[in-house]
């Protein structure tokens, strides 16, 4: 069967079936539209490639590349050249530009849920614990382990109310 991309009409290579309110909806995309829409994520893309793709996305590149960190003096174009950042503050200054780079390099993840520093304050530790439990909850629901899911939900409530 030859499907055409729902967006641009080119031959479709990605086929999705979604169930919305009990109705089955079939969607077809070409590789290009699928990756722009974030449906597929290319795996193990080298950082250079990620940056290049990012720059190619219209509109975003220009204003971002002129951003400069007032702590280390690095600009976003400097970063694009060797793929290394200049200081921790860059993560905030270049957040708009970095977010999509990180997301693509990290299987779509945007939030740390692992270990937090030994000396992090209580609020930070609580926040981290909740984020981690939420991720676990998602896993339990996906695995249809509702008993475990309920236990996790209770744990989250307990931390939130403490």
């Amino acid at each position: 069967m030859n499907f055409k991309c729902d967006k641009c009409g080119k031959p479709a290579t990605i086929h999705l079936t979604e169930i919305v309110d009990g109705d089955k909806i079939e969607k077809h995309f070409c590789q290009n539209c699928a990756s722009t829409d974030g449906i597929t994520i290319q795996s193990e893309v080298p950082i250079g490639q990620l940056l290049e793709d990012f720059v190619l996305q219209s509109g975003v590149a220009e204003p971002t590349s002129e951003l400069q960190c007032d702590v280390c003096g690095m600009t976003f174009s400097d970063f694009r050249e060797d793929g290394l950042l200049g200081c921790p503050n860059d993560y905030d200054v270049f957040e708009d530009g970095l977010a999509s780079v990180i997301e693509r390099a990290q299987e779509g993840a945007t939030q740390h849920i692992g270990k937090v520093p030994y000396r992090a304050d209580e609020a930070q530790k609580r926040q981290a614990a909740i984020l981690r439990l939420r991720a676990e909850l998602k896993g339990a629901v996906a695995a249809e382990d509702y008993e475990h899911a309920a236990a996790i939900r209770d744990q989250i409530k307990e931390i939130e109310n403490s």
Binding site: L84, P88, Y91, I102, A105, K115, P117
Partner: peptide, 29 residues
């Protein structure tokens, strides 16, 4: 070992991206 060192050192940490690294592909853990 990391915990032991953290008793004496403050490592760069971000609410969203976790432990910060020079290359953004190593962030988080």
């Amino acid at each position: 070992a990391d915990n032991t060192l953290e008793e004496k050192l403050n490592f760069a940490f971000h609410r969203k991206y976790g432990y910060l690294t020079a290359c953004p592909t190593n962030v988080g853990t």
